[in-house]
Simulated assay, not measured.
Amino acid sequence: MPATPYVTAAEFAAHPTYLALDNLRQDTSDPDAQSAELTNILLMASSWADSECNQPLGAHVATRTQRARCDRDGNLQLFANRFPVLSVAAVSYGSGPGDQADVLDLTGAWTLEQRLVLVPIGGARTPSGPGLYVRWTFVAGRVATLVDDDADQGATALTVTDPTGIQPGEAYRLWEPGLEETVTVADDYEPPTASSAPQPTEIPLAAPTLHAHGAGFSFTGMTSDLRLAVVSYAASLLMRPDSAAEDEYPDNNASSTRSKDSRPTGLGLVKEARRILMSETVVF
Protein backbone atom coordinates (compact mmCIF):
# COMPACT_ATOMS: atom_id res chain seq x y z
CA MET A 1 0.00 0.00 0.00
CA PRO A 2 1.34 3.47 -0.82
CA ALA A 3 2.41 5.60 2.15
CA THR A 4 -0.02 8.34 1.14
CA PRO A 5 -3.02 8.20 -1.21
CA TYR A 6 -2.54 9.36 -4.79
CA VAL A 7 -5.40 11.84 -4.20
CA THR A 8 -5.69 13.62 -0.84
CA ALA A 9 -8.92 13.88 1.13
CA ALA A 10 -9.20 17.62 0.43
CA GLU A 11 -8.59 17.06 -3.28
CA PHE A 12 -11.26 14.34 -3.38
CA ALA A 13 -13.72 16.57 -1.54
CA ALA A 14 -13.18 19.28 -4.18
CA HIS A 15 -13.99 16.83 -6.99
CA PRO A 16 -17.66 16.99 -8.12
CA THR A 17 -18.76 13.57 -6.86
CA TYR A 18 -21.73 15.12 -4.97
CA LEU A 19 -21.24 12.58 -2.20
CA ALA A 20 -21.83 13.38 1.47
CA LEU A 21 -18.50 13.14 3.27
CA ASP A 22 -19.45 14.31 6.77
CA ASN A 23 -20.94 11.02 8.00
CA LEU A 24 -18.29 8.45 7.12
CA ARG A 25 -17.97 7.66 10.82
CA GLN A 26 -21.14 7.43 12.85
CA ASP A 27 -19.44 7.58 16.25
CA THR A 28 -18.22 11.16 15.92
CA SER A 29 -18.97 14.46 14.21
CA ASP A 30 -15.35 15.61 14.37
CA PRO A 31 -14.40 16.86 10.86
CA ASP A 32 -10.81 15.69 11.35
CA ALA A 33 -12.04 12.17 12.09
CA GLN A 34 -14.20 12.21 8.95
CA SER A 35 -11.22 13.42 6.89
CA ALA A 36 -9.01 10.69 8.37
CA GLU A 37 -11.56 8.04 7.39
CA LEU A 38 -11.76 9.47 3.86
CA THR A 39 -7.96 9.27 3.69
CA ASN A 40 -8.20 5.57 4.64
CA ILE A 41 -10.66 4.98 1.79
CA LEU A 42 -8.41 6.82 -0.65
CA LEU A 43 -5.46 4.70 0.50
CA MET A 44 -7.51 1.60 -0.28
CA ALA A 45 -8.44 3.02 -3.69
CA SER A 46 -4.77 3.82 -4.42
CA SER A 47 -3.72 0.32 -3.36
CA TRP A 48 -6.47 -1.13 -5.58
CA ALA A 49 -5.11 0.83 -8.55
CA ASP A 50 -1.63 -0.57 -7.84
CA SER A 51 -3.03 -4.09 -7.75
CA GLU A 52 -4.90 -3.61 -11.02
CA CYS A 53 -1.63 -2.59 -12.71
CA ASN A 54 0.50 -5.23 -10.94
CA GLN A 55 2.96 -2.60 -9.71
CA PRO A 56 3.05 0.55 -7.58
CA LEU A 57 1.91 3.48 -9.74
CA GLY A 58 3.76 5.98 -7.54
CA ALA A 59 7.50 6.49 -7.98
CA HIS A 60 9.42 3.78 -6.13
CA VAL A 61 12.81 2.06 -5.96
CA ALA A 62 13.02 -1.40 -7.53
CA THR A 63 15.85 -3.92 -7.86
CA ARG A 64 15.96 -6.63 -10.48
CA THR A 65 18.31 -9.52 -11.28
CA GLN A 66 18.26 -10.85 -14.81
CA ARG A 67 20.31 -12.22 -17.72
CA ALA A 68 21.08 -9.60 -20.36
CA ARG A 69 23.06 -9.17 -23.55
CA CYS A 70 24.95 -6.27 -25.14
CA ASP A 71 24.11 -4.69 -28.46
CA ARG A 72 26.70 -4.08 -31.17
CA ASP A 73 27.65 -0.75 -29.57
CA GLY A 74 28.48 -2.28 -26.19
CA ASN A 75 25.27 -1.19 -24.46
CA LEU A 76 23.86 -3.56 -21.87
CA GLN A 77 20.18 -4.09 -22.72
CA LEU A 78 18.01 -4.17 -19.61
CA PHE A 79 14.25 -4.67 -19.55
CA ALA A 80 12.40 -3.28 -16.51
CA ASN A 81 9.50 -5.15 -14.95
CA ARG A 82 8.21 -1.84 -13.52
CA PHE A 83 7.51 1.24 -15.61
CA PRO A 84 7.91 3.95 -16.63
CA VAL A 85 11.62 3.96 -15.72
CA LEU A 86 12.56 7.39 -14.35
CA SER A 87 16.23 6.85 -13.52
CA VAL A 88 18.88 4.16 -13.02
CA ALA A 89 20.57 4.10 -9.61
CA ALA A 90 23.01 1.18 -9.83
CA VAL A 91 24.10 -1.58 -12.23
CA SER A 92 26.49 -4.49 -11.75
CA TYR A 93 27.22 -7.31 -14.21
CA GLY A 94 29.46 -10.31 -14.74
CA SER A 95 29.78 -13.83 -16.05
CA GLY A 96 28.22 -15.23 -12.88
CA PRO A 97 26.33 -14.17 -9.74
CA GLY A 98 29.59 -14.11 -7.75
CA ASP A 99 31.59 -12.28 -10.40
CA GLN A 100 30.10 -8.80 -10.57
CA ALA A 101 31.57 -5.45 -11.64
CA ASP A 102 29.83 -2.17 -10.88
CA VAL A 103 29.10 0.31 -13.64
CA LEU A 104 30.69 3.44 -12.19
CA ASP A 105 29.30 5.99 -14.65
CA LEU A 106 25.57 5.83 -15.37
CA THR A 107 25.26 9.23 -17.03
CA GLY A 108 25.06 7.51 -20.43
CA ALA A 109 22.12 5.27 -19.48
CA TRP A 110 19.27 5.74 -21.94
CA THR A 111 15.62 4.67 -21.59
CA LEU A 112 13.55 3.65 -24.61
CA GLU A 113 9.76 3.20 -24.59
CA GLN A 114 9.80 3.86 -20.83
CA ARG A 115 11.07 0.39 -19.88
CA LEU A 116 13.99 -0.70 -22.11
CA VAL A 117 17.23 0.69 -20.69
CA LEU A 118 20.58 0.82 -22.51
CA VAL A 119 23.65 1.07 -20.25
CA PRO A 120 27.12 1.62 -21.82
CA ILE A 121 29.64 -0.74 -20.22
CA GLY A 122 32.85 0.29 -21.93
CA GLY A 123 32.72 -1.81 -25.05
CA ALA A 124 32.20 -5.10 -23.22
CA ARG A 125 30.79 -7.90 -25.33
CA THR A 126 28.27 -10.50 -24.32
CA PRO A 127 29.74 -13.98 -23.94
CA SER A 128 28.14 -16.84 -25.82
CA GLY A 129 25.07 -18.30 -24.18
CA PRO A 130 22.14 -16.58 -22.42
CA GLY A 131 24.17 -13.47 -21.58
CA LEU A 132 25.58 -11.67 -18.56
CA TYR A 133 24.29 -11.86 -15.01
CA VAL A 134 22.99 -8.41 -14.08
CA ARG A 135 21.71 -6.84 -10.89
CA TRP A 136 20.35 -3.32 -11.21
CA THR A 137 18.39 -0.78 -9.19
CA PHE A 138 16.15 1.80 -10.74
CA VAL A 139 13.31 4.22 -9.99
CA ALA A 140 10.00 3.53 -11.72
CA GLY A 141 6.43 4.80 -11.62
CA ARG A 142 5.18 8.36 -11.50
CA VAL A 143 6.06 10.98 -8.92
CA ALA A 144 3.41 11.01 -6.18
CA THR A 145 4.41 13.05 -3.15
CA LEU A 146 3.12 15.90 -0.97
CA VAL A 147 4.21 19.46 -0.32
CA ASP A 148 5.83 19.27 3.11
CA ASP A 149 5.94 22.95 4.17
CA ASP A 150 3.83 26.04 3.51
CA ALA A 151 5.20 28.21 0.71
CA ASP A 152 4.53 31.85 -0.13
CA GLN A 153 3.37 33.09 -3.51
CA GLY A 154 6.41 33.46 -5.73
CA ALA A 155 8.32 30.66 -3.99
CA THR A 156 11.41 29.53 -5.89
CA ALA A 157 11.57 26.17 -4.11
CA LEU A 158 9.13 23.70 -2.56
CA THR A 159 9.88 21.08 0.07
CA VAL A 160 8.30 17.69 -0.60
CA THR A 161 7.89 14.72 1.72
CA ASP A 162 9.43 12.25 -0.76
CA PRO A 163 11.69 13.28 -3.67
CA THR A 164 11.69 9.82 -5.29
CA GLY A 165 11.55 10.10 -9.07
CA ILE A 166 11.67 13.90 -9.29
CA GLN A 167 13.94 14.90 -12.18
CA PRO A 168 15.55 18.21 -13.20
CA GLY A 169 13.72 20.03 -15.97
CA GLU A 170 10.52 18.00 -15.56
CA ALA A 171 7.06 19.51 -14.95
CA TYR A 172 4.79 18.45 -12.08
CA ARG A 173 1.30 19.40 -10.98
CA LEU A 174 0.27 20.94 -7.65
CA TRP A 175 -3.31 19.90 -6.94
CA GLU A 176 -4.25 22.19 -4.05
CA PRO A 177 -7.97 22.93 -4.67
CA GLY A 178 -8.47 26.39 -6.17
CA LEU A 179 -4.72 26.96 -6.39
CA GLU A 180 -3.74 24.29 -8.91
CA GLU A 181 -0.69 25.00 -11.05
CA THR A 182 2.13 23.31 -12.89
CA VAL A 183 5.72 23.84 -11.75
CA THR A 184 8.98 22.90 -13.46
CA VAL A 185 12.03 21.67 -11.55
CA ALA A 186 15.22 23.69 -12.05
CA ASP A 187 17.76 22.19 -14.43
CA ASP A 188 20.49 22.29 -11.76
CA TYR A 189 18.53 20.13 -9.29
CA GLU A 190 20.52 17.07 -8.25
CA PRO A 191 18.24 14.20 -7.14
CA PRO A 192 19.34 12.50 -3.92
CA THR A 193 20.35 8.85 -3.92
CA ALA A 194 17.26 6.71 -4.40
CA SER A 195 16.18 5.26 -1.06
CA SER A 196 13.44 3.10 0.39
CA ALA A 197 13.37 5.53 3.34
CA PRO A 198 13.27 8.96 1.66
CA GLN A 199 13.57 12.22 3.57
CA PRO A 200 11.85 15.58 2.96
CA THR A 201 13.78 17.44 0.28
CA GLU A 202 13.77 20.99 -1.06
CA ILE A 203 13.09 21.11 -4.79
CA PRO A 204 14.33 24.24 -6.63
CA LEU A 205 11.98 25.54 -9.33
CA ALA A 206 12.71 26.95 -12.75
CA ALA A 207 10.15 29.75 -12.17
CA PRO A 208 8.40 31.12 -9.06
CA THR A 209 5.02 29.71 -8.04
CA LEU A 210 1.91 31.61 -9.08
CA HIS A 211 0.17 30.99 -5.75
CA ALA A 212 0.93 30.44 -2.08
CA HIS A 213 0.63 26.76 -1.16
CA GLY A 214 -0.09 24.87 2.03
CA ALA A 215 1.47 21.65 3.24
CA GLY A 216 -0.23 18.33 2.61
CA PHE A 217 -1.30 18.70 -1.02
CA SER A 218 -0.17 16.65 -4.02
CA PHE A 219 3.04 17.38 -5.93
CA THR A 220 2.67 14.81 -8.65
CA GLY A 221 3.58 13.45 -12.04
CA MET A 222 0.44 11.32 -12.09
CA THR A 223 -1.72 11.97 -15.14
CA SER A 224 -5.19 13.41 -14.59
CA ASP A 225 -6.68 10.13 -15.81
CA LEU A 226 -4.78 8.07 -13.22
CA ARG A 227 -6.04 10.38 -10.49
CA LEU A 228 -9.56 10.09 -11.90
CA ALA A 229 -9.34 6.29 -11.67
CA VAL A 230 -8.55 6.56 -7.95
CA VAL A 231 -11.36 9.10 -7.44
CA SER A 232 -13.83 6.87 -9.30
CA TYR A 233 -13.01 3.76 -7.30
CA ALA A 234 -13.12 5.67 -4.01
CA ALA A 235 -16.51 7.14 -5.00
CA SER A 236 -17.81 3.62 -5.68
CA LEU A 237 -16.83 2.64 -2.13
CA LEU A 238 -18.71 5.64 -0.74
CA MET A 239 -21.96 5.33 -2.67
CA ARG A 240 -25.13 4.80 -0.62
CA PRO A 241 -28.43 3.16 -1.65
CA ASP A 242 -31.02 5.45 -3.24
CA SER A 243 -33.80 4.77 -0.77
CA ALA A 244 -34.24 3.81 2.85
CA ALA A 245 -35.78 0.52 1.75
CA GLU A 246 -32.57 -0.40 -0.06
CA ASP A 247 -30.34 0.82 2.74
CA GLU A 248 -28.47 -1.95 4.52
CA TYR A 249 -27.41 0.61 7.12
CA PRO A 250 -30.68 2.23 8.29
CA ASP A 251 -28.90 4.69 10.57
CA ASN A 252 -27.21 6.29 7.55
CA ASN A 253 -28.80 9.08 5.56
CA ALA A 254 -29.79 7.69 2.16
CA SER A 255 -28.47 9.60 -0.84
CA SER A 256 -30.43 10.27 -4.01
CA THR A 257 -27.35 11.40 -5.92
CA ARG A 258 -27.47 8.34 -8.19
CA SER A 259 -31.26 7.97 -8.35
CA LYS A 260 -31.30 8.47 -12.13
CA ASP A 261 -28.08 6.61 -12.72
CA SER A 262 -28.13 3.06 -14.06
CA ARG A 263 -25.12 2.36 -11.83
CA PRO A 264 -26.58 2.67 -8.33
CA THR A 265 -24.19 0.10 -6.90
CA GLY A 266 -21.11 1.93 -8.14
CA LEU A 267 -20.02 -0.93 -10.40
CA GLY A 268 -20.04 1.42 -13.39
CA LEU A 269 -17.46 3.58 -11.65
CA VAL A 270 -15.28 0.53 -11.01
CA LYS A 271 -15.54 -0.42 -14.69
CA GLU A 272 -14.55 3.10 -15.73
CA ALA A 273 -11.62 3.11 -13.31
CA ARG A 274 -10.40 -0.19 -14.77
CA ARG A 275 -10.74 1.18 -18.32
CA ILE A 276 -8.60 4.18 -17.42
CA LEU A 277 -5.92 2.06 -15.76
CA MET A 278 -5.79 -0.31 -18.73
CA SER A 279 -5.38 2.56 -21.20
CA GLU A 280 -2.71 4.21 -19.05
CA THR A 281 -0.69 1.04 -18.63
CA VAL A 282 -0.71 0.50 -22.38
CA VAL A 283 0.77 3.99 -22.75
CA PHE A 284 3.47 3.32 -20.14
Rank of each mutant, 00 (worst) to 15 (best):
P2S: 14
A3E: 04
A3P: 06
P5M: 01
H15W: 14
Y18Q: 08
Y18R: 07
L19Q: 12
A20N: 14
L21H: 07
D22V: 08
D22F: 08
Q26L: 09
D30Y: 07
Q34M: 04
Q34A: 03
A36H: 05
E37P: 01
T39S: 11
N40L: 02
L42K: 13
A45C: 04
W48Y: 15
C53R: 10
Q55V: 08
P56R: 08
A62I: 02
T65P: 02
R67T: 15
L76D: 14
L78P: 03
A80C: 04
P84Y: 11
L86S: 11
S87T: 09
A89I: 06
S92P: 00
S92G: 02
Y93S: 06
S95L: 03
G96H: 07
P97M: 02
D99M: 04
A101F: 13
L104D: 15
G108Y: 07
W110G: 07
Q114E: 11
R115L: 05
V117L: 03
V119N: 08
V119D: 03
A124Q: 11
G129Q: 03
P130G: 09
G131N: 04
G131K: 01
Y133I: 07
Y133N: 08
R135F: 06
W136I: 00
T137P: 07
T137W: 08
T137D: 09
A140T: 06
G141R: 05
R142M: 07
V143A: 12
L146P: 08
V147M: 00
V147P: 00
D152R: 10
D152I: 10
D152G: 12
T156E: 07
L158Y: 12
T161H: 03
P163G: 08
Q167N: 12
P168I: 11
A171H: 12
A171Y: 08
W175M: 10
L179V: 05
E180W: 03
A186H: 02
A186T: 07
A186I: 06
D188G: 00
Y189T: 01
Y189L: 04
Y189D: 08
T193I: 04
S195G: 05
P198E: 13
P198M: 02
A206W: 06
A206T: 08
A207E: 12
A207T: 14
T209W: 07
H211L: 03
A215C: 10
A215D: 13
G216S: 04
F217G: 10
S218K: 08
F219V: 03
T220L: 01
G221R: 02
T223S: 15
S224M: 05
A229D: 02
V230G: 13
V230D: 05
L237H: 14
R240F: 10
P241S: 15
D242Q: 13
E248T: 11
E248C: 01
Y249D: 09
A254W: 03
R258H: 13
K260D: 15
K260R: 15
S262C: 09
A273P: 00
V282F: 05
V283H: 13
F284I: 01
